[in-house]
Amino acid sequence: MNKSVSVSYYAILREQRGLGTEEVPTMAVTASDLYEELRARHGFTLPASRVRVAVNDDFQPWGVAVEDGDRIAFLPPVAGG
């Protein structure tokens, strides 16, 4: 089923995408599918194994289902402090 999600990128992913947030129509079933779809499209250098995903402002496992209207964020390795 086709759905639309809001995708946010941070740090190196934001720079590689060239924007911070976008609406993405997708048929991806899981967050992992969605990342691989976008990685192929935009040439992200980080493999999913080094990225975390948040859905509606909370961390989720990569296998989480993507639902229409979700706010999805892809988070590169963190480096605060």
Binding site: A11, L46, P76, P77, V78, A79, G80, G81
Partner: peptide, 24 residues
């Protein structure tokens, strides 16, 4: 430092930049 989603980009004296921990 390990868990909070905050990122740091360093600007160096030679003009280059790097997102820390994001090297591939």
């Amino acid at each position: 430092k390990a868990r909070v989603p905050i990122w740091k980009k360093e600007h160096y004296g030679d003009g280059s930049t790097e997102w820390i921990n994001c090297a591939t």
